[in-house]
C-alpha cells in the first residue's frame, strides 16, 4: 500500500511537470490555432539562456549572491523569450495567416530547428547545470499511518508546487485582466475579436510570450532536475499525449491530462514494466491517450467537434 501510494504521488508530481509543458501547447493553440511543435525547442532555448545568464551576468556585474544572480538571469531569459515571441510573430506567423494546420505545424518545426541551432551556437552545446537551490534530499512523511512511511522527493514536491502556482497565476491572468479577456475572445472567434478592435498580431505576440515564460519555468525545473542539455527538447514529445488526452483547447484539460499521464506512466512502469521489459513509459503514455481518444475524439475537455457539410 505504502509503495503504491509512493508511486502514485511520484506520478502526480511528474504529471504536474508534463502539464507545464502541455500548457505551452494549449495556450498557443487556443489563441492562434497553431500546433506549436517548437515548444520543446523553446524549453531548451529558455533553459540554456537561464543557465548561461546565471553564470555570465554575475561575472560581468561582479555579483556574488546566487539568489540575485538567478533572479536577474531569470528576468533576462524572460526578456529573451519575449524577443523570440516577437520575432516569431513578425517573421513567421504574420505571413502564414489562413494556412492549413499541417503547414503551420511544419513552420513551427522549422522554428524549432532555428531555435535549437541559434541556442546551441550562442550558448554552447555542453551540459549545463541550473542551481536555483532546490532541496535535493527525500523526506519521509506519514510514518505513523504506514509501515515504513512514504518517501517523497522534496525536489519533485517543490517543482509541483511551482507548477501549481504558475497555473493559478495563468488562470488569474486569463480570467481577471483585460489582456486575458482579449486572449479568450481571440480564442473563441478570431474574426469577431478582430471586428471589435482586438489587434490579432499583438495578441499573438503576447500569447507566444506567455508560452515562452511557461517554457522558461518548465526549462528551469526540468533543467535543474536533469541538467540542461539537448535532450530537453524532446520533453515536448512527452507533453504531446497530455495535450491530446486533455483536449487541445482546454487549460484544465492540460493539467488533469498531465496528472493522468504522469500517474499512468509511473504505475505502468512499476507494475507492467517488469512483465514486458522496461522503458515502456513513453509509448504507454501515447497508447493511454489513444484509448481515451477512441471514446472522446476531442479529448477530455476539448470543444465538441461538430461536422457541417
Amino acid at each position: 500500500m505504502g509503495f503504491f501510494l509512493e508511486t502514485l504521488i511520484g506520478g502526480l508530481m511528474a504529471g504536474m511537470l508534463y502539464s507545464l509543458v502541455a500548457l505551452g501547447f494549449v495556450l498557443i493553440f487556443k489563441a492562434s490555432g497553431v500546433f506549436n511543435f517548437a515548444q520543446g525547442a523553446m524549453v531548451l532555448f529558455a533553459a540554456l539562456a537561464m543557465a548561461r545568464f546565471a553564470v555570465w551576468i554575475p561575472a560581468w556585474l561582479g555579483l556574488d549572491s546566487p539568489f540575485l544572480a538567478n533572479t536577474i538571469a531569470f528576468l533576462a531569459a524572460g526578456a529573451l523569450m519575449f524577443v523570440v515571441a516577437w520575432l516569431v510573430e513578425r517573421l513567421v506567423l504574420r505571413h502564414l495567416v489562413n494556412q492549413e494546420g499541417a503547414t503551420l505545424l511544419m513552420a513551427t518545426l522549422g522554428i524549432a530547428y532555428v531555435l535549437e541551432g541559434v541556442g546551441t551556437s550562442i550558448f554552447g552545446s555542453d551540459v549545463y547545470k541550473i542551481d536555483i537551490g532546490m532541496p535535493k534530499d527525500p523526506v519521509m512523511i506519514l510514518e505513523g499511518s504506514f509501515e515504513g512511511g512514504l518517501l517523497i522527493n522534496k525536489e519533485d514536491f517543490v517543482a509541483a508546487l511551482i507548477a501549481a502556482v504558475l497555473v493559478a497565476l495563468l488562470a488569474l491572468f486569463f480570467q481577471k485582466t483585460v489582456t486575458g479577456r482579449a486572449l479568450r475572445a481571440v480564442a473563441d472567434d478570431h474574426q469577431a475579436a478582430q471586428s471589435i478592435g482586438i489587434p490579432l498580431n499583438r495578441i499573438w505576440v503576447i500569447v507566444w510570450c506567455v508560452a515562452g515564460v511557461v517554457a522558461l519555468v518548465a526549462g528551469v525545473i526540468w533543467g535543474s532536475k536533469l541538467g540542461v542539455q539537448f535532450s530537453l527538447a524532446t520533453v515536448a514529445l512527452r507533453g504531446l499525449p497530455v495535450v491530446i488526452l486533455g483536449g487541445l483547447t482546454s487549460i484544465p484539460g492540460a493539467i488533469i491530462g498531465g496528472l493522468i499521464i504522469g500517474v499512468g506512466e509511473k504505475l505502468s512502469e512499476v507494475y507492467l514494466g517488469p512483465m514486458i521489459g522496461g522503458g515502456i513509459e513513453i509509448w504507454f503514455a501515447y497508447q493511454l491517450a489513444l484509448v481515451f481518444l477512441l471514446f472522446r475524439p476531442q479529448g477530455l475537455f476539448g470543444e465538441k467537434i461538430i461536422d457541417r457539410v
Partner: peptide
C-alpha cells in the same frame, strides 16, 4: 487532423 497526427506518434 492534429489529434490524429499525435495519435500516429504512438
Amino acid at each position: 487532423g492534429l489529434y490524429l497526427a499525435v495519435a500516429t506518434l504512438a
